[in-house]
């Protein structure tokens, strides 16, 4: 029993040490010697893969989540005669919580798993080794552009998610359930703050973007180069990244809105 606990502890420490080491290596690759001429096209290509291709799922999910929020919120608020608070309720839920968190979870599933699988496969087919033998640093050539693309794309996706979600809430709340148009927007405006809500939401999603992209790349880079290894790395990316996002979300929320 004690052995089991000790082994859990040891594994945790080992994996933390491994991830820390990987972080240092990664930072080194990211910060070291920027070469805009070569890295800009790579970044653009990865933003296409990571960002543009996640756009559809983000927009559709955002729209539906906004609509559901409005529908659920209305049935609760109408009992208190406070249906005019529907606007701020939808907007605040999206900006503070659902936008960053759901985007991060969807991103982990859509783009994170793909990143892990891609890098794992590149490792298995010796493409990473072959880069190294061609005197090209795979961290700089393969990992860094994907990392930046994830870090930039996810907050953008979160913004789109929230905006689309608010529009979905507007469609259901105002056009279907008959909340007053003017009140919906003006009450929303007076209770949603630019700094407190919008900016904090963006900060959240930048942190999530960092964590999710990093986990995805780390898992791919350290996967066992076999088909079983890659599939388990992919699963592990989604699970680890989702848990990390939810855990961090609590910490960040406590820091930002708790005090």
């Amino acid at each position: 029993m004690l052995d089991a606990i000790a082994s859990v502890g040891r594994q945790t420490l080992d994996s933390l040490a491994g991830m820390g080491k990987a972080l240092l290596v990664l930072l080194n690759a990211i910060i070291g010697k920027p070469t805009p001429k070569k890295s800009a096209p790579l970044l653009l290509q990865q933003m296409h893969v990571v960002g543009v291709k996640s756009l559809l799922i983000i927009i559709v999910s955002g729209l539906f989540i906004g609509m559901v929020l409005a529908l659920q919120g209305y049935t609760i608020l109408v009992d208190y005669g406070a249906e005019q608070s529907l606007g701020p309720m939808v907007a605040l839920s999206l900006l503070r919580e659902l936008g960053p968190v759901v985007t991060a979870l969807l991103f982990a599933g859509r783009a994170g798993s793909a990143l892990t699988a891609e890098i794992g496969l590149m490792k298995a087919t010796e493409q990473l080794s072959s880069l190294e033998m061609m005197a090209v640093d795979p961290l700089r050539r393969v990992i860094a552009p994907r990392f930046w693309a994830g870090l930039i794309s996810m907050p953008m996706l979160a913004l789109i998610f929230s905006a689309v979600g608010i529009y979905g809430g507007y469609m259901v709340g105002v056009q279907w359930l008959g909340v007053d148009d003017g009140a919906f927007w003006s009450v929303m405006q007076s209770s949603v703050d630019w700094y407190d809500d919008l900016l904090n939401g963006i900060i959240k999603s930048v942190v999530f973007a960092f964590v999710v992209t990093w986990i995805a790349l780390y898992k791919g880079y350290n996967s066992t180069p076999t088909s079983a290894g890659i599939s388990s790395a992919t699963t592990s990316t989604v699970v680890t990244a989702s848990l990390a996002v939810l855990g961090l979300d609590f910490v960040l929320t406590a820091l930002m809105f708790g005090g």
Binding site: L121, T125, E126, Q127, S129, S130, M133, M134, A135, D137
Partner: peptide
């Protein structure tokens, strides 16, 4: 090492072409 590697190359078993 990276300088020296530019003077050698390696053909991997799988070819390792960038897919």
């Amino acid at each position: 090492l990276y300088q020296v590697r530019q003077r050698m190359s390696m053909l991997f078993q799988s070819g390792a072409l960038f897919t």
